[in-house]
């Protein structure tokens, strides 16, 4: 598991991708704060600090799924398609492969996000660990969903297309379900991470449970699949 995770992390990190993602996270945080200060002149000190981090959380909520799908939609099915998976399944368990991939991607986003938070803390003069944890919980869910899709659909070209659709639809649907009062569909909000992110306290931790369930389902499918 460790070796697969390390390889996934290194392959994501050694390219231009990581610098680009950190740059996007930083720019969003900086300009959201600047724009917010510009339109709302009477922000308190606390609000002024938080707006940097809220900008970043907002970016992950809106585009995180799209970013992760874009980078990792083929993390499993590319190996199945090119049959490199055959070398992996003959050496280690399928669960190790799945978890290795998951933790490799998670570690990449953890490092990118942590770097961004540390850089933001320089000009925000505060490191908001609560928003960091919320953002990480959402990223964990988004990564688990990406792995699930990559296991479920064996064609990388299809997951690339689906990644864009899911990346756009998931946050839109999530917000709509959180805000709608339609009784027929509003119950679905309880199975999306967005509802729990909107709550106060630590209810966002439920998102980790969803991630676990998605990984469990991915594991069941992957264990039955011929390579």
């Amino acid at each position: 598991m460790y070796e697969i995770g390390k390889r996934e992390f290194v392959s994501l990190f050694k390219s231009f991708k990581s610098i680009m993602i950190i740059a996007i996270l930083l720019a969003t945080s900086y300009y959201s704060a600047k724009f917010a200060s510009f339109i709302v002149t009477e922000l308190t000190d606390v609000e002024d600090i938080d707006i940097h981090y809220f900008g970043l959380l907002g970016l992950i909520v809106l585009f995180g799924q799209l970013f992760i799908m874009g980078l990792s939609h083929d993390s499993i099915n590319r190996e199945l398609h090119e049959r490199t998976m055959r070398f992996l399944v003959t050496r280690t368990s399928r669960v190790s492969i799945l978890l290795g991939k998951f933790f490799g991607i998670l570690m990449f986003w953890f490092v990118c996000l942590l770097t961004s938070f540390l850089l933001i803390s320089i000009f925000a003069h505060k490191l908001d660990l609560y928003i960091f944890s919320q953002t990480m919980s959402l990223l964990t869910f988004q990564i688990a969903l990406t792995i699930f899709v990559s296991v479920l659909i064996p064609k990388p070209s299809f997951t690339m297309f689906l990644g864009i659709v899911v990346g756009i639809l998931v946050p839109i649907m999530g917000f709509w379900l959180t805000l709608t009062e339609n009784v027929w569909v509003s119950w679905i909000k309880y199975i999306t991470p967005f509802y729990y992110l909107d709550q106060d306290g630590y209810t966002f931790l439920v998102t980790f449970l969803f991630s676990g369930l998605l990984l469990f389902a991915a594991g069941l499918i992957f264990n039955r699949r011929d390579c």
Partner: peptide
């Protein structure tokens, strides 16, 4: 899976990692 460390496999039709 415990036996996997004791077996070596050269499968038919398998690609290597190009990078």
């Amino acid at each position: 899976d415990s036996v996997k460390k004791d077996i070596g496999v050269m499968p038919d039709y398998a690609n290597l990692y190009g990078s």
